[in-house]
Simulated scan of single mutants.
Amino acid sequence: MPSIDITHSHGKTPAQARKAIEQVAKKLAERFEMAYAWDADTLNFNRAGVDGKIQLLPKSLRVTADLGFMLSMLKGPIEAEIRRVLAEKFD
């Protein structure tokens, strides 16, 4: 079961939502040396200690991630930051 599982509704078109997700992924890649790649409407990302995905659904996004031992201790702050970014980009 994923360590993090967040669903966030949005009113963007699929193209707008995909662009916003791509912008977030680029920032994460730069800040945390995270690799990412699209597979249809799912952006998969990973780095040491985290493996996750962002699914682009018609009216929502679903962020799931498995956190390694060290990052699992920071689950609360990580979830809070994900929710903040989603609200900033998709509300």
Rank of each mutant, 00 (worst) to 15 (best):
G52C: 10
H10Y: 11
K89P: 00
A35S: 14
G49C: 10
V63P: 03
A87R: 15
K75L: 06
K89R: 12
K75W: 04
R62I: 01
L57I: 03
H8C: 09
T64C: 04
R83Q: 15
V24Y: 05
T64M: 04
V24K: 11
F32T: 12
R83F: 01
T64S: 04
N44I: 08
G11P: 00
A35L: 08
E30Q: 13
D51E: 15
A48E: 10
A20Y: 05
K53P: 00
S9R: 14
F32N: 13
M1A: 11
A15P: 01
T42Y: 03
P2I: 09
F69C: 06
N44H: 15
I21Q: 09
N46C: 06
R84W: 00
G76E: 08
F45I: 11
K12Q: 14
Q16A: 15
R47L: 03
L71S: 02
E79H: 01
L71G: 02
D39H: 07
L28Q: 14
T7N: 06
R83W: 05
G76V: 14
A80R: 13
R31K: 13
D91Y: 03
A80Y: 03
E79K: 08
N46G: 13
S60C: 02
E79W: 06
A80N: 12
L67R: 08
P2R: 07
G68N: 11
M70S: 05
H10D: 03
K12D: 13
L43T: 13
R47T: 05
A48Q: 06
M1F: 07
G52D: 09
Q55C: 04
V24I: 15
R47P: 00
D66M: 08
V50L: 14
D5K: 02
K75A: 09
G11K: 05
V63F: 14
E81F: 02
K26R: 11
K59V: 10
R84P: 00
A40N: 15
H8R: 04
G49M: 11
A29I: 03
S60D: 13
T13G: 06
D5Q: 12
F32M: 15
Q16I: 00
Y36G: 10
A35G: 08
E79L: 11
Q16P: 05
D5L: 09
E22W: 03
K19N: 12
F69Q: 14
A48D: 14
L86F: 03
N46L: 13
Q55I: 10
S9C: 10
N46K: 14
A48V: 07
P14G: 10
S9W: 04
D51G: 04
K89Q: 15
K59W: 06
E33F: 01
I54D: 01
M70N: 02
D41V: 11
K12E: 06
I54L: 12
I78W: 06
R62T: 06
W38N: 10
P77S: 03
H8V: 10
Y36R: 08
A87H: 09
A20Q: 12
I54Q: 00
P77I: 02
D5I: 08
L43N: 07
P14E: 05
L56N: 15
L57Y: 08
G52K: 04
S60F: 10
R18E: 07
I6K: 00
K19E: 08
S72L: 09
P58A: 07
A25N: 01
T64G: 00
P2T: 00
G11W: 01
P58W: 04
A65H: 06
